[in-house]
Structure formats: structure tokens, C-alpha cells
């Protein structure tokens, strides 16, 4: 593989992680972002599940891109995405029922996550399988990072634990609001604030 190809692949990969981060830059897929990030484990599993669906469906969409007429493309994408969501649904049930209950309806709702349909339409339908898988992996990891950064803050403040490990001892006072829906909005808002403040600073520094 030539360096030019490597560089392009790396660029495709990093796009989702940083420049086009689905959570912090594009603010997509807010439904699972706010709903399941009560703990770091939930956030991580949701991120991994979404990434799996994203990568697999992008690969299949990309493979079929030359035989998909544009009139039926949305139907094709939805069928493909729904298939992999079903696979993930079974897989999580097989791995852990507790996790399945904690994530609830949001596993099935991956099917309507606009990141996935957006990637299929905007990227996978126009690029060869390897490239679109790399791009999808970047997006998936970017999404997982986004969920995890919410989940970590909410778990630490809301339960005093991180990945289930107690950080402050038994006497920790949980911030109840952090495990309730408003906490999701507060934490997401704070992260967005931090990122845009940082981006603004960088821009100012560039102009000076």
C-alpha cells in the first residue's frame, strides 16, 4: 500500500473521531446519547453495538452500491441496517441479559440512528467497501468516545463509581440528577460548551 493511500485511509478514519465527531460536532444520534449514558458500561456497550451495525451495514451497502437502483436505495439501506440491528439484539441477549435490560429499547432504536443511515447514504454508497468500512469504524469510535465521555461523567457524579468500581467509598453522596434525563442534557451541554470554547480559541490563535 502506497503512502498516499495510507494517508487517505488515515484521514477517512480520523474524520469521524475528530473533525466530524458525530456527538460533539455533528450532534447526531442524540436519543441514545442522552438516554443510555447513565453509566460508563452502558455507554461503551451502546457505542460498540452501534459501531458494529455501522461497520457491517456500510460494508454491505458499499458492496451492493453498483447494483442498487436509486429509487429503492433507502429501502435497501433500511433492510440492511435492520438486519444488523437484529443481529446485535440477539448477541447482547446472549452476552448479558442485565445489559440488555439496561439498554432497553435503545438497541432496537439503533435502526433509526441517523448516523448510520447518514453514513450509508453519504459515504458507503459512493466508496469501495474498504474505504467505507474504515470511515465507518472512525465514526463508530468517535460515537463511542462521545457516549463514553458522557457516561464517565454521569457515572462518577451520579453513582461515585467508574465501570462499577467505587471511587469514593461507601459514603459517597450520589448526585441524583446525573442519572436522571436532565443530567444527560447538563453533561452534554457542558461538553459541547467545552468543545466549542476550545475550537473558538484555536481559531482565534490561528487568526492572530
Amino acid at each position: 500500500m502506497t503512502t498516499a493511500v495510507q494517508a487517505r485511509n488515515f484521514d477517512e478514519f480520523m474524520e469521524g473521531i475528530w473533525r466530524q465527531n458525530p456527538v460533539f460536532i455533528m450532534v447526531l444520534g442524540m436519543c441514545p446519547t442522552l438516554a443510555v449514558t447513565v453509566s460508563a458500561v452502558n455507554a461503551l456497550s451502546m457505542g460498540v453495538a452501534t459501531s458494529f451495525v455501522l461497520i457491517c451495514s456500510c460494508a454491505l451497502v458499499s458492496l451492493m452500491r453498483n447494483v442498487t437502483p436509486k429509487e429503492v436505495r433507502i429501502a435497501v439501506y433500511i433492510v440492511i441496517i435492520a438486519t444488523f440491528v437484529t443481529v446485535v439484539d440477539y448477541a447482547i441477549q446472549a452476552i448479558s441479559l442485565a445489559l440488555y435490560d439496561a439498554l432497553g429499547a435503545f438497541i432496537q432504536l439503533i435502526v433509526v440512528n441517523c448516523i448510520i443511515l447518514g453514513r450509508a447514504e453519504a459515504h458507503a454508497a459512493k466508496n469501495p467497501p474498504i474505504t467505507s468500512m474504515i470511515n465507518a469504524a472512525g465514526m463508530g469510535i468517535g460515537f463511542t468516545i462521545g457516549l463514553l465521555s458522557l457516561g464517565v461523567v454521569r457515572e462518577i457524579l451520579g453513582a461515585g463509581t467508574l465501570f462499577g468500581v467505587s471511587l469514593f467509598g461507601a459514603n459517597f453522596q450520589p448526585w441524583v440528577i446525573m442519572v436522571l434525563p436532565p443530567g444527560g442534557f447538563f453533561v452534554l451541554g457542558s461538553w459541547l460548551l467545552l468543545f466549542s470554547w476550545w475550537a473558538r480559541r484555536k481559531e482565534v490563535a490561528k487568526n492572530v
Binding site: G160, F168, G169, N171, F172, Q173
Partner: peptide, 8 residues
């Protein structure tokens, strides 16, 4: 006078 982050 509860410790910070701890249950009063």
C-alpha cells in the same frame, strides 16, 4: 460539615 462529595 460533611466531607465534600460525601453523604451528610
Amino acid at each position: 460539615l460533611a466531607w465534600p462529595l460525601m453523604i451528610p
